[in-house]
């Protein structure tokens, strides 16, 4: 089994496909590329694709990651060259690197994600008001966020999961950059942070109207963020 880490963008029309559809699209693209996919044993052999972290439908991913497993080795450049032309619109390969087979599981490794959210505010809102809002979030002891899950409404505190938050604001155009907790446990969604920012800052607007970009996925090593991919 040979393991390749594919860094890709998910943008344009591909922004609107869900995670399961993305998995299927990636598998089909690899088959079109003629990559020698590794298959599991058993009655229903499946290829193995491990994505770092599902990207919610509608978000744009600038540095998404998937580990692809092949049964015979190939040059990382050749994998990239074969895959690039056969991807659906909006999925763009950025880089392919070979990773050791025993490297930690990609999905389990992810601890932080960085996002940028862009949206419009009422131009009457002042830069000072935006600064105050950012401070309000950072200084809050606790930020309750309600999420509508399949099992009903769930309330939790998202404040401990917000590590970094900054805003740029110019005449109604707001750009929020953040680093938040990510992964299989305690994952923070950037909409929740933007909602909190608007709510705590008393700013008019709806997080639904923002465009979200995931700009990076990270592990924490000795207290420092190290980018994956």
């Amino acid at each position: 089994m040979f393991r390749y880490r594919v860094t890709f963008r998910k943008e344009g029309p591909a922004r609107w496909i869900g995670h399961l559809d993305l998995v299927r699209a990636m598998e089909r693209a690899c088959r079109r590329a003629g990559l020698p996919l590794w298959y599991s044993e058993g009655f229903n052999p499946r290829p193995r694709f491990v994505f770092a972290l599902p990207l919610p439908v509608g978000h744009i991913g600038l540095k998404e990651l998937v580990d692809v497993y092949l049964r015979v080795p190939a040059g990382a450049d050749s994998v990239k060259a074969r895959l690039a032309p056969v991807l659906p619109g909006g999925i763009v390969v950025v880089a392919v690197v070979r990773v050791p087979r025993e490297a930690p599981n990609l999905m389990a490794a992810v601890q932080r994600a960085s996002y940028v959210a862009e949206g419009g505010l009422d131009p009457a809102v002042t830069p000072a008001a935006v600064e105050t809002a950012v401070r309000a979030v950072l200084e809050a002891k606790e930020i309750k966020s309600v999420r509508q899950g399949k099992a009903g409404r769930k309330e939790r505190d998202i404040r401990p999961g917000i590590f970094d938050l900054a805003a740029e604001y110019d005449r109604g155009e707001l750009r929020v950059a953040m680093t938040v907790k990510a992964g299989q446990q305690g994952n923070i969604r950037p909409e929740e942070v933007v909602e909190a920012l608007l709510r705590l800052g008393g700013l008019p607007g709806d997080a639904m109207d923002f465009t979200f970009y995931r700009t990076g996925l990270f592990v924490v090593t000795a207290g420092r963020l190290v980018g994956l991919g």
Partner: peptide, 17 residues
């Protein structure tokens, strides 16, 4: 903006191979 608000935006997004 419409795509952002519908249940299955992939129905209208295009870009298929």
């Amino acid at each position: 903006r419409l795509l952002q608000r519908v249940e299955k935006p992939g129905r209208y997004a295009g870009g298929e191979y």
